[in-house]
Amino acid sequence: MKCEIEEFIGYLHNTRGTSKNTEVSYERDLKKLERFLTEEKIESVEQVNATLLNSYVMYMERKNFAASSISRSIASIRAFFHFLCQTRSWKENPAEHLKAPKIEKKMPGILTIDEVDLLLKQPRENTAKGIRDRAMLELLYATGIRVSELISLTLKDINLKLGYITCSSGEKERVIPFGSAAKRSVEHYMEGARAELLGSQESEMLFLNCSGKSMSRQGFWKVLKSYAEAAGIQQDITPHTLRHSFAAHLVQNGADLKSVQEMMGHSDISTTQIYMNMNMNKIRDVYMKAHPRR
């Protein structure tokens, strides 16, 4: 099955133009299935049937895998076997009737506007690192991009004059505007801090670590955590918290869902709908507290 997985990942990369993160996710899920099948003494992918795949789903449930993890694994398995059916001319797809568990959509954690403001004031701009951190936080909140997109930005992806960034994910590309606060912070970073971090090296990456290399997800996560603690923010905060806050604050201030969907890069507007639901819940709470005949 190892060769088939490699062939499938190659197809995703070369034909579908998927992102590296997507490919890594598919490969991880399929290798877990491969280990399970090996334990079941299955030697070739042709031996896999619907019963075995259902057994694997039940195995994940017994191991208390999160419903979201099981659902993602099933999606990976179905895509994999669909690919094999097309390339091998199989008459039956063993994964055709695999069903994902229902996932309850939870309201994402967001910061208040005051908390965001307090967080963004934490970096001290008397060092190159502090100037960089302020620019990254401002741009993340201003655009709502994913942390993987933030650390992947190159110099050519940002237009400071017109105030927008270009994000590419596989074949998809989206242009996202940003405001004056983020513009000032990024300009401040570009005026000298970036060159100081870069030293004598060369790089097309926009944001650099203290060694002049590309920032990592883990590196930025630690930066964000330290500033959240300094700001006295009690809730558990991740880079995605700022992404959710960006979308929720836009909706709260009247932005239409279609525009928010495009900026967030959601393929389905139902994913964006959750921010409208959050806004309705807030309005309902205000009503119940204030209306005399509630």
Rank of each mutant, 00 (worst) to 15 (best):
G199Y: 06
S168K: 12
S168D: 08
D29I: 07
L162V: 09
I77G: 08
E46I: 09
K183R: 12
C85V: 14
S76V: 07
I158Y: 10
E125D: 05
I151C: 02
Y11E: 00
K156C: 05
L197K: 01
L224M: 10
Q234H: 15
I151K: 00
I103G: 08
D256Y: 08
L120S: 05
A79L: 02
N126L: 11
K2N: 10
D133W: 03
F178S: 03
K63A: 13
E149D: 09
F246P: 05
L224W: 05
R78I: 03
N54C: 13
V260L: 08
E39Q: 10
E40G: 02
C167V: 15
R184G: 07
Y141C: 04
K161Y: 10
Q235F: 13
C167L: 12
R132Q: 03
I74W: 09
D117G: 05
H240A: 04
F220R: 02
S203H: 08
K183I: 05
V286K: 09
S89W: 11
M264W: 07
A67K: 12
G219C: 00
R35K: 09
M276E: 07
G232N: 09
S168M: 15
K222R: 08
G212E: 00
E171V: 13
G17A: 07
D117Y: 00
C85N: 04
K258P: 02
